[in-house]
Amino acid sequence: MAQRHLDPTDRPTAEVVTAHALEGYLRAQATEFLRALRLHRVTGGSSAGGADGAVDAARALRRSARRISGSLHTFRPLLDPGWAEEMRPELAWLSDTLGLEHAYESRLERLLLALHRLSGAAVFPAQAVTAAAVAAADPGAAGRAGGAAPVPPRAAPDHGGGPPVPAPAPERGNLTVGAAKAGALLERQLTLARTRAHSTALQALGSARFHAVADKVAVLASEVPLTPAAATTDPSPLAAAARERLTDAVAALPLITAGRPYNAEALVHGLSPGPSPHPQDGPWHQVRLLLRLHRYAREALYADGAPVDVRLVAAGQALDRHRDAAEAAGAAAQAARTPRIAPATAYALGVLHADQRHEVEAARFAFQRAWQKQTVDVP
């Protein structure tokens, strides 16, 4: 496998790219949207296997909506301006609404697994937490049955009759006790948020607003509202402009800070009284958005004929990890602000927050390494 430096938006063939490529791409994405909508209607009310099918359909709807919206943003000069400006915010609303439930579910799983890892217990002591102990961690949850968070257990090591395992350090023991209560608190908060997001998504899919979006996407599947000049306009400069916006945003990132193993400022701000997101995270989230727009522009122009850019793949994965860890850290910090929680619970949540901020820094470093490769694999 040879490697050569290559502009990610270079044409893989000598053919001139026209707006017909964009037209075909938008039609294909609209068709995928309608296919996912049909699947959701079929599986959404099914009693057998409907849940998994509905999840897949919602994911496909989000995928198509993001690509259509991103293409409308990048190639706006080639499309009817009124139609594009009306469609973009509606598609963004739909994608965000459908993604909230999955985001809360993934965030809870990530945080509970991190608590399990940090506690160092062979089996997470969720069963030992009584309803009274949970009420001490969060007085507002005294009426909830069960009390403890269902944390996936880690298999206990088989010592085969060998020497006894040393007792954990006092700090680790304190963390184990606090982690059980912290897990219960996070489970309640994020499960409630997930339930609300699920209800919101169902309401959105049954609303007149969504049906109006679906009707416009159905028209898009057969007719793309291009401008009269689009037929003779090369869309490649618009894709190149999306690439330049991404390059400029990456250049503005503090990559030197991202190379450090410890970023104390991020930890201090995350546990401050203010619930706003950390200011360091905003530019990285913006780069993730611009990277996605750049990828969609490449898909629109070249479909399956684009060269494989391993840098974009690795960089996108690192930014996804960054987003997940940053949001998980924010959820831990928000839980730590719950009034009247036990000191051990607050301690465990603080350790959890620090752990996720370290994951943020690791993701930034991984992005830095991936981006600086600047190579594309060529067969």
Rank of each mutant, 00 (worst) to 15 (best):
L312N: 12
Q356R: 13
P166Q: 14
A36N: 10
R321V: 01
E223I: 02
E223T: 08
W371H: 04
A114L: 12
A114Y: 05
A48Q: 12
R292W: 07
E361C: 09
V16H: 13
R154W: 07
A65V: 00
R88W: 01
G350W: 01
G316P: 00
D324L: 11
P339N: 03
Q286Y: 04
H73I: 09
D248Y: 08
G44C: 06
Q356C: 07
W93F: 06
P166W: 13
S64W: 02
G44W: 09
R295H: 09
L108D: 05
S199T: 14
P77C: 09
A145Q: 15
G305E: 12
A141K: 04
E85W: 06
P157D: 15
A348G: 06
S46R: 15
V224Q: 05
S119V: 09
E15Q: 13
A239C: 02
L202F: 09
V213T: 10
P225W: 07
T13G: 05
V219L: 07
D304K: 06
P225A: 13
A342C: 05
P277L: 01
H294V: 11
V378P: 05
A221F: 08
V165H: 11
S69Y: 01
A136D: 10
V219S: 07
I256L: 13
L78T: 03
L94M: 15
H102S: 13
T9W: 06
R321P: 01
P254L: 09
G99P: 01
G120T: 06
G274I: 10
S207T: 08
A333K: 05
G140Q: 10
A65G: 03
T31M: 12
G82M: 04
A342I: 02
S236G: 06
A239T: 01
A335F: 00
I68K: 07
R209S: 09
H285L: 15
A336Y: 00
P8W: 01
L205D: 00
M1T: 11
G53K: 05
A132N: 10
Q334V: 11
Q189I: 15
P153D: 00
T200G: 14
E15C: 10
A184F: 06
A156F: 08
A128D: 14
Q189K: 14
L301S: 01
A137L: 02
P170I: 08
A184M: 02
R59P: 00
E109W: 08
A28G: 05
H358W: 05
G178H: 03
L301P: 05
S46G: 14
D324I: 07
A251V: 04
T74N: 04
V129C: 00
R311K: 13
L190F: 03
V224C: 11
P12G: 01
A103C: 02
G305Q: 12
P307A: 15
D309P: 03
G53T: 04
L226K: 06
A335D: 01
Q127G: 06
V268W: 10
